[in-house]
Design a protein around this nucleic acid. Structure first.
Lengths: 215, 215
DNA sequence: TAGATTGTTAATCGATTAACAATC
DNA sequence: TAGATTGTTAATCGATTAACAATC
């Protein structure tokens, strides 16, 4: 039954790729090295070389013993693997503290996340620009969104309204949601959702500190 | 050699605890349920009940068959487990987009992260307040920080200066760093570091979308 | 009581790490 | 050449899930 099983990447590997790309691009910029070994990448990220090699094998780029991987090709392959070589038109809903920060985050723009508009319920924020992105009234979502051709929506609104706003976004054609709220979203199966939780990182830090408490 | 091996929590479990706490507190607030079962918690978080039960066993709180876990006790136990029942005086370095957003993030304050000051190199931001937190010139770090009694520092500065600023923070007595930069920090062993990477979540979203591309 | 739920022990699954031949 | 590095296959490790007796 199984013909040519495609090696699918696992989540931990996918999450490491952006850091690989970052290291490679820094080396390309500063030191102009044409080749970069897994050993070097691993050292700069506090990982094991074997893990880096395993991950990089997913890209299909072959390394050369003694030299490593061709930097430029590898960077391009990672970008292609992540889908960061194509532009994703996107909107952000909730131009508050976190939302505004994300609108201005350069890394995202460089990797294809193109904010074409933001929406907010606060009339004071509406019809202004945040980091060059126009902010519309969320009441106008249904009239404004369809013509924007956006595929992605970033949710940085209060958790209580997350489900209803998500429903409206999906009915306007949004295919993927990056959810920074605490709400679990119930959506049609074709809609991709990535949930983000800043508290989980804070929990890690807290537990580490609890372990080294002086009292 | 092994006496009474203490059951240490693993990272995935620690990362799930904030969401458990959130569900419990919402139930306590809205519905005033004295007991909450793993089944219910799991459903609201898209997890398996068995996983929730396994995690909750770490807190030491015993559930009652047919009813579940005592909500109030459970919430208190999770807060204690995470160390969220004690206040951590902290500073933020780099009051830019992301930094300002974190200063205003209510969830952190509610869970013991108390920003007593921020530092920035931009003189226009200095000697003002962001979300009620005073912003000092980073040049004055060594004079201001020691008297603030802060244990934690949040790093939201450009990656290039992360190492040098981290060194200065540690020499002023900072014990834990929440690192939002791309820099790998080389620090004494007693300093706890939690690295955060928003790009990894974006990578997950991108790969999901790449899989469902229309073209 | 019957049935849902807990909590523990065992099985499974998946990711990391080790081992090692190939190669530049 | 010698030695570092790749890439593959196998072993290990750790987290999730299953099984099931206990219990309310």
């Amino acid at each position: 039954m199984s013909m040519q099983k495609k090696k699918l990447a696992n989540a931990p590997s996918i999450r490491r790729f952006p850091s690989y790309l970052h290291v490679i691009q820094r080396h390309l910029g500063e030191k102009r090295r044409d080749y970069l070994s897994a050993t070097v990448i691993a050292r700069e990220l506090d990982l094991e070389a074997i893990q880096v090699r395993k991950d990089l094998s997913i890209t299909g780029i072959a390394g050369t013993p003694k030299r490593g991987y061709p930097s430029r090709e590898l960077a391009a392959a990672i970008e292609r693997f992540l889908g960061w070589d194509t532009v994703n038109r996107s909107v952000l809903v909730g131009a508050g503290n976190l939302g505004s920060a994300l609108l201005g985050y350069r890394d995202f723009k460089e990797h294809g996340l193109d904010f074409v508009a933001a929406f907010d319920s606060d009339p004071r924020k509406t019809s202004a620009f945040v980091h060059g992105v126009p902010v519309f009234d969320i009441a106008d979502l249904e009239t404004a969104l369809p013509s924007l051709n956006a595929r992605v929506a970033v949710l940085t609104i209060p958790s209580e309204c997350a489900q209803s706003v998500a429903d409206r976004l999906v009915s306007c054609g949004i295919e993927a949601l990056w959810n920074f709220t605490h709400a679990k979203l119930d959506l049609p199966g074709h809609v991709r959702v990535q949930k983000e939780d800043l508290s989980s990182g804070y929990a890690m830090l807290s537990v580490m500190m609890r372990g080294s408490r002086k009292t």
